[in-house]
């Protein structure tokens, strides 16, 4: 009975040519490229031999590029639609992580003591530009406009674009007595220290 039914089924299957819709075929190849990208990432991370590592890295980059190209083609053909996130949701997450940024900044200042310590740990003069760049970025990211409602208690709301000069460097608050014109040398540490102290005043009061 079993043999009979399977042979009947086999005949039926043999008679029909299964045409996979283009969308399904594209999805299979897309999934395959995504899976291969993940596997190349793992292989790359695990490779000890530089030549093997480089080969896996090249193939990873190529898989990502191919995956992107196929996705864009599918998107153009209406086979893969992407829904945009609601602006309200983005703003909610933005506020949440802005607060998180403040807390992380406080944590760093509490344990690292700001730019001076970081520069010292990283070997002094060469590390200083990076430290300053980091500080500038921190100021620009977490210098909140007034009225955002997520300021930590005691934080000054004056850290806005008015405190950032044309070159993107944060200006010292009035009365801090620090020059922002220093560019290199041992004076930089002093500046970083003062900047950090000034920064700390803003958020740790």
């Amino acid at each position: 009975m079993y043999n009979q039914s399977t042979s009947t089924m086999g005949q039926q299957m043999g008679q029909q040519h299964v045409a996979l819709p283009d969308k399904d075929m594209a999805n299979i190849v897309l999934s395959e490229l995504k899976r291969m990208s993940r596997e190349y990432t793992t292989a790359c991370l695990e490779a000890a031999n530089p030549m093997v590592h480089q080969t896996f890295n090249q193939l990873l980059q190529k898989s990502l590029a191919d995956q992107m190209q196929l996705f864009q083609l599918m998107n153009q053909q209406g086979m893969y639609n992407v829904t945009a996130a609601p602006t309200q949701e983005i703003q909610k997450e933005q506020q949440k992580f802005r607060q998180c940024g403040f807390e992380t900044q406080q944590f760093m200042q509490q344990y690292l003591g700001g730019g001076q310590t970081t520069a010292g740990m990283m070997g002094g003069q060469n590390a200083q530009p990076t430290s300053q760049a980091t500080m500038n970025q921190m100021t620009s990211n977490y210098g909140m406009p007034s009225g955002m409602g997520t300021m930590p208690p005691g934080a000054s709301s004056t850290t806005t674009s008015s405190n950032i000069n044309a070159s993107g460097n944060p200006q010292m608050r009035a009365g801090s007595g620090t020059s922002s014109g220093m560019s290199s040398g041992s004076g930089m540490s002093t500046q970083m220290s003062s900047t950090t102290q000034d920064h700390s005043k803003k958020y740790l009061i």
Partner: peptide
């Protein structure tokens, strides 16, 4: 300069 057994496995899988 040689290839490890793990790397050989990844190469074959790839």
């Amino acid at each position: 300069g040689s290839v490890s057994t793990k790397e050989l496995s990844y190469i074959c899988d790839s």
